[in-house]
């Protein structure tokens, strides 16, 4: 895994952002991350893929990633250069998929509510601390249960399964 400290500019989205908003099904005739990245968040913010910079952070409301099981959703976010997603809560399949593919996600209702679009934010993945560098306020994300931390540390589910098979 790369550095545990992430820093980037915030892009804000609302509640119940569904997977069709994240990556519309009309683009699912491919699974190439680079092609999916071009259409990331297209139906929520048509210009998003063009303006997001490497390392930027998505901050959203409740139930982020609801709807389809398409792993193309977290894949497109990751491939678009987004370093992590902070939300008040995540839909369960999106949560699972993000952990499995290694897209960092953090759950914090306070951060989700308070952090404004355009702010610079720093996230320490090892402690779950979210620092709003623009306002100087900090927030603590909910910690992952030990098993999920193990999955994350292994580098995702495939690496975890490989280890299990070898052992």
């Amino acid at each position: 895994m790369s550095s545990n400290i992430l820093q980037g500019k915030v892009w804000r989205f609302g509640n119940d952002v569904d997977t069709d908003l994240i990556i519309p099904a009309r683009y699912l005739n491919t699974s190439e991350p680079k092609e999916l990245a071009v259409h990331c968040m297209e139906d929520a913010d048509p210009g998003f893929a063009g303006k997001v910079n490497l390392g930027d952070i998505i901050v959203a409301g409740k139930n982020f990633g609801c709807g389809s099981s398409r792993e193309h959703a977290p894949i497109s976010i990751k491939a678009a250069g987004v370093s992590c997603v902070i939300a008040a809560s995540f839909a369960r399949i999106f949560y699972r998929n993000s952990i499995n593919i290694g897209l960092p996600i953090l759950e914090s209702a306070e951060a989700s509510k308070a952090i404004a679009e355009g702010n610079q934010v720093e996230v320490d993945l090892s402690s779950g601390k979210i620092m709003d560098l623009t306002t100087g306020k900090s927030y603590q994300a909910a910690p992952f249960p030990p098993f999920m931390q193990e999955l994350i540390n292994a580098g995702g589910l495939i690496e975890y399964v490989k280890k299990r098979i070898t052992n």
Partner: peptide
């Protein structure tokens, strides 16, 4: 690896949607 996999609960089965990596594993 389809969110509507939960359909089979009608048969008294536990079924749930997952992503592609879970399917691979």
């Amino acid at each position: 690896a389809d969110s509507h996999t939960c359909t089979y609960g009608a048969l008294g089965a536990f079924s749930t949607g997952v992503g592609s990596t879970d399917m691979a594993a």
